[in-house]
Design a protein around this nucleic acid. Structure first.
Lengths: 179, 179
DNA sequence: AACTTTTGTTTAGGTTGCCAAACACATGGA
DNA sequence: TCCATGTGTTTGGCAACCTAAACAAAAGTT
């Protein structure tokens, strides 16, 4: 447990790199091309900054540039980008449609996490959602039940339900600290 | 969606700071005291590095030091640490007990995410787990059903179940890129 | 052709956070 | 008392990323 924390820095892709890659991908779809300036504009950073970060991504073989300075993703770059995109979709959908988190919060959380979550966990979460949403009737039922449960739960001070029940008592405390 | 990505840097607590705080908390419980050296040893970083990071945490009013250089958490520091700890517990339990992710992976993922996930999402996830694990019989049933579903799902090439079905087809691709 | 704008790069500066190494101090033997 | 060990801080380096600002080159305008 103590040794695990340094894994954070060992990610293949940093948050910044992930967004440079997805920016290129999005721009290619939306505009048909992607240049340094376009990426910078999309990410709202300076051209200088984008230029340098993209240079390292080129050196790492994730981004390629043709003779006219048009950027595209290498095969590896594309794969990584797709995986991150899939993870974001799964996370966002889970937060929004299952947990009923407000859209804006769901988007922010998914964005922060998408490049960090393991593929194993991403896959399991996907399976789980397929399982839950499998049968439209069943899923509608489940979500409604959950909504009812949440309502009752939010009213009570604490909940002696499962072994993590004690956390609920801290709810008020939690809410005041993080935005 | 494009504007959200900079939120990442705007966290109150960085990954590193979170672990310095929890290290102090753990050490206080385990040893009864926490000094710079103890934190450094626990986190496997140099004393110099811990010294500097802890200095900024002191300046931010999250960590306090008595006349004998013994560290403790301020009230705010303690609250933040508790919240992060709660989030980690909820996430780990969800990954491990619901999604059936291997323990090591669950720990790593929770560790990477704990300081990033919003309290809103954390709370909803907690409610959801309370809901699912509410009734022991029901939950046992649900988890077994899910296990069966997963098995059937893993065998097929794709799954035309919900709107995110297309992701499953990419499973092989996903597995090869991220460790 | 001359001027303006756009583009990509580079340089200098700032921040966070790591390491290695040097220091200053204190404490605990021998 | 002298020396070894442990502790906390500081310094110089490095890496990732950001900004601001200066430039050269290309492209568009009049």
């Amino acid at each position: 447990m103590q040794d695990v924390w340094k894994e954070f820095e060992q990610n293949i892709i940093t948050h910044s790199a992930a967004h440079h890659l997805t920016a290129i991908s999005d721009l290619l779809v939306q505009n048909g091309y992607a240049r340094v300036t376009d990426v910078a504009r999309k990410l709202k950073i300076t051209r200088g900054s984008a230029s340098i970060t993209l240079k390292t991504l080129k050196e790492r073989g994730l981004v390629m540039e043709d003779e006219n300075k048009f950027l595209k993703l290498s095969e590896t770059g594309l794969s990584i980008t797709q995986v991150i995109h899939l993870k974001r979709r799964v996370l966002t959908k889970f937060f929004k449609d299952i947990l009923n988190v407000p859209e804006e919060t769901a988007n922010i959380d998914a964005c922060k996490i998408e490049h960090l979550i393991s593929t194993k966990t991403g896959e399991k979460l996907l399976s789980f959602m397929n399982f839950l949403l499998n049968d439209p009737k069943k899923s509608k039922n489940l979500l409604e039940e959950f909504a009812g449960f949440r309502m009752r739960c939010d009213e009570t001070e604490s909940c002696e339900i499962c072994e993590i029940d004690c956390l609920l008592a801290d709810k008020k405390l939690i809410g005041n600290i993080f935005k």
